[in-house]
Design a protein around this nucleic acid. Structure first.
Lengths: 223, 223
DNA sequence: CGAAGTATTGAGACGTCTCAAAATTAGTGG
DNA sequence: CCACTAATTTTGAGACGTCTCAATACTTCG
């Protein structure tokens, strides 16, 4: 499921808060930890729980028969995912790094939603947020160049990942590539290009610590 | 907005029916006709109405600054579109051919949804259907070849457009291309290839009347 | 320090795009 | 209903962007 809490901050916070209330009162809820790379649920599996990331990061993806992978969304701290209205999940979800989630029984939530309009509307708001993200991503996947995709990705992560100046990306180049509909080499080349242009810098001894030096020029590449 | 009523037939029919009920009783509703090519609403415009296609076909798309276009969905007879939960539309909607729509005031529907759980859940179901379509389309746009995209398109239209053996596509090659993230030439070449292979035939004196001769082999190209 | 995993860079291949022309179909007015 | 024009579709040929395959470099972890 595509979750993008930060995008619709005002009402989304409500939705999140509401689910929080529910959990504290009526609905079974617990924490769970997944190791780096562990599968949280598989596509077409029964959707028994919904999840909120407490720590770490998660990728949701679909596979084609021959292994081609499309990541539909990254779920970062605070994000809720796994919310399906049908009985089955539509993505596979995996922990990108060691990850702690809070989970609640889907049926319980469903049950409350059937009588409580506020909860039903909160679900609607969350689903709409996911839809909006998917709609924007279709434009990216269908019509943007590799450089534009990478720029959009960096700005999305900058917005969602941190208030700090340094972005610590949890995902690999391959994950980024499968999110953007590219190969990892093309992603790497785009990042190198942006680095050479002085638009971003790599921090410390890792290629996943990125600092955006020139958000303006990056935004010009976004659209 | 992405509408794909046929995909979730059972509950979706409910949703559709429900909206129908509402309209007949409490909510202002009327019909409207749009000429081929006419804009129904623009992106970022205030979402005052939601629409149902009574006759014709509609495309919903986003544009980049330089004219690149991504069509997010086609709305066919029976489909509901323009349903946004925010105040503004997220796509531009245009009539592909002369089109008749039924429309209702968004605020009225919103109002009812705020007190009636059934309506709120119907909106959730419709939004979820749109989300599911968008999720599948991301996989197509990010990871499928041109031939796979065209095959998927033909099967989608076959499913949604008709029970008859002949498919009368309302949209141009350019529309198809902008839906599939390709150029119109590439779409044309893929169709020619499928024709040459005996998988589809063109009927009558138009290239938009297509008959699927071998759904099985087409499905092998889908995934 | 060594080994495994990950990222970068290079060079050539390939699929789709671009540009252009020809063919077909649709639209219009007589 | 035909003739003419405009629009759309098909087809071709070459260009271009991204992918593939391969080698090197870097980072992490034991």
């Amino acid at each position: 499921m595509l979750v993008n809490i930060n995008a619709v901050s005002a009402k989304r916070q409500n939705a999140l808060g509401e689910l929080g209330e529910l959990s504290r009162s009526r609905i079974f809820l617990s924490e769970f930890k997944y190791n780096r790379g562990a599968e949280i649920y598989g596509e077409t599996e029964t959707a028994d729980y919904i999840y909120q990331v407490l720590e770490g990061a998660v990728r949701s993806y679909k596979l084609l028969f021959d292994g081609r992978r499309q990541i539909g969304a990254f779920h970062l701290v605070g994000d809720i995912f796994g919310l399906e209205n049908g009985a089955a999940h539509r993505f596979t979800a995996e922990a990108i790094v060691d990850t702690t989630v809070r989970l609640m029984k889907r049926r319980s939530l469903e049950h409350v939603a059937e009588t409580d309009v506020v909860v039903a509307l909160d679900l609607l708001i969350m689903t709409t947020g996911n839809l909006q993200h998917a709609e924007d991503h279709m434009l990216l996947l269908g019509r943007k160049t590799s450089l534009e995709r990478v720029a959009a990705f960096l700005l999305e992560m900058d917005r969602r990942l941190t208030a700090k100046s340094v972005m610590a990306l949890p995902m690999s180049r391959r994950d980024i590539a499968d999110y953007l509909g590219l190969t990892l080499e093309t992603v790497s080349r785009a990042l190198s290009y942006l680095h050479a242009k002085g638009i971003l810098g790599f921090l410390g001894p890792t290629q996943r610590q990125i600092v955006l030096l020139d958000r303006l020029r990056l935004a010009e590449l976004d659209l």
